[in-house]
Design a protein around this nucleic acid. Structure first.
Lengths: 206, 206, 206, 206
DNA sequence: AATGAATGAGGATTCATTCAT
DNA sequence: GATGAATGAATCCTCATTCAT
């Protein structure tokens, strides 16, 4: 009789596998169009097994999008503490990090997911506002205020609307998601052009 | 008890009503989570009636998102022809228009819809790239090139990445969609701050 | 403004047109798969108009299949009265008539229709039994009894099972309906072979 | 209140049960008028379960009618090989077999089904022509040719139209399906009368 | 009388979830 | 724990029938 492989493994690892599979599926097709079986298949387990780790599809989604975002901001946050670093370097570092950690990762689908499903899952939106946006803006505000005080900003008013700094990053994701197939966007150029617009030339007018 | 009226009306108007209802529903819950019956109910008609105007849900969606966007760009395009107008005024006008025509309208949900369902409806994405993005970028490129030539830009490199100009508009929509409930974003300030960063002061070269 | 043709015409003629259209449709696709709109379109009238002549689909079907059969048997019946005609000629004439009036006509679909929908419309079956089968068998019985008495039959027992005489006709319809496209059946040969089997040679062994 | 049992069973058996239920339903009401739920209920399972075994209604139908016919002809075929058996015995055996295996079985509804739905399912018609008709006629042709050569046939021309031999069988099914309720047809007599007409008396050539 | 837009009941199919093995 | 067959609620879509014009 053919043995059915019932691979038992560390629950924590299994859980992580399911989340990875779920993320791939949700990112690809959205919440509604993803079948629990898709997730199971992708995780190489049986349908029922998913339910041993997550009570239902909704919960799976919520735990997924909530758990995937956290660690991005840590690094930037710590750099900011060092007041001697010029604001431009901090923002530049933020863009680099964003590029490596989000844009060039599967995580780039996250925005799409949150934007798409946000209205159906207010918990998720709220989570992102609280955990990511609030913290990110706070950091940016600090950096920009310091930059304004030091005369590093061409327009000090920017310090009041830190969202402006996030805008190019947003644009890069949206473009990557929708239009990269039709026309390439050089994000390096995008970010640099913005940095050069935002900040006064480093060596000043010397 | 509510009367069941068998209201007959102009097909064109009926079609428009359905599209309006459909847009509201799709914007609210996304493609998959919207039931055809929701659309019908919202349009105050019976389920079957929708099918007299659109062959199926998918087509309803496609015709919807395709038909809703067109007229936005016309106005900006015509202004650009006038070469005596400063670039800053053109871009400023673009933001104003965007605010009035998109941000403060139900159309602000459009991006969400396209972003969310794009991968499932490549036709839609392609349509937007071809009809909106291509044209918009082309106009911006003209304007920015002219501005660069006239010394109106603080950083002429921006002329190569016209997407940068769209970034704040994008941010304004995303913010409005997701976080406006938690924290207000003053888009006026956002746009102005960006304009003041992008362009040299008006009286500048005196 | 474009005039909508509202062709009024003799109700009797209109009714006949609808029945003709209905027969074509039902014969082609069966009762369930035929849409009232198909019938209307085929009759070149609007959906609603059908209902001015028939209360519902079921009734349309019943009146249709009931009205289409009657006149076939009249001719045979009258010939039988003439006792001097040999039985073989009568049966042969029946086959010829059947060929011309049923097999080579749209009426050949009738059997299929009755057989297919019979269980759903006992009225129809009963009608055919009463109006067609009973009368046909009765005639055949008379003819065969006379033939037996005259020694025209190779096997007089056939007179007790007049259905046997109908069997080749049945076969010809079924074959035409199902298999004629794959392989031709020479009905002339079929009928002649049967006649030559059933009846003793005309000129006998002289 | 009835218990909802979640009975698991051998897939092959389950499949057979569904086919049996489907056959009963289709035979009773035809393809279009049969609801998948009818089939499920009759098989004492839930709607969805049917779809675990058949992708859709159409496929269920096709697999059903294709699978139900096969084994009928085997027996006759093998008898024919024995050349010493008189043709009459072979044909007689064919009728007996037909009576026991088709007429007195639920299989008697098969003709109705094929005739009714054939035009909508050409695959089915083609299958029957290829698998049943072709083979059956081929056997009959062999038998009749042999009979003609031996002088067993009253009319050797019959050997060219083997369909004639099938005609009484056809008649017996059609009668059973439509009119048995109104008037009994003694198929024994029908077949015997035909056999006695077709073949010369057994002791004949003495 | 004729039309065809409007209605809504009905039926095929999907898929989240359960549970016997 | 793991499996996947079984379940049935939910949703798309069709089409017989009605009725305002």
């Amino acid at each position: 009789m053919a043995e059915k492989k019932r691979e038992k493994r560390d629950p924590e690892q299994r859980r992580a596998e399911i989340l990875a599979a779920a993320f791939a599926c949700f990112a690809e097709r959205g919440f509604a169009a993803t079948r629990m079986e898709d997730v199971a298949t992708r995780a190489r387990i049986a349908k029922g097994t998913v339910y041993l780790h997550f009570p239902d599809k909704e919960r799976l989604f919520i735990e997924l999008v909530s758990g995937i975002a956290s660690p991005i901001l840590g690094e930037v946050g710590s750099v900011v503490l060092n007041e001697t670093i010029p604001a431009r370097s901090v923002v530049s570092m933020f863009y680099s990090l964003f590029k490596r950690q989000v844009l060039e990762t599967e995580r780039r689908h996250l925005l799409r997911l949150i934007l798409a499903e946000g209205p159906m899952f207010p918990v998720v939106t709220e989570f992102y506002y609280r955990e990511i946006i609030t913290k990110g803006l706070s950091i940016l505000r600090t950096v920009l205020a310091r930059a304004a005080a030091r005369g590093e900003l061409r327009n000090p008013a920017v310090a009041d609307v830190p969202q402006l700094v996030m805008a190019p990053a947003l644009m890069s994701i949206v473009w990557a998601t929708l239009f990269e197939g039709y026309e390439h966007l050089d994000t390096e150029k995008l970010f640099d052009a913005f940095l050069d617009t935002l900040f006064v030339a480093e060596g000043g007018t010397i």
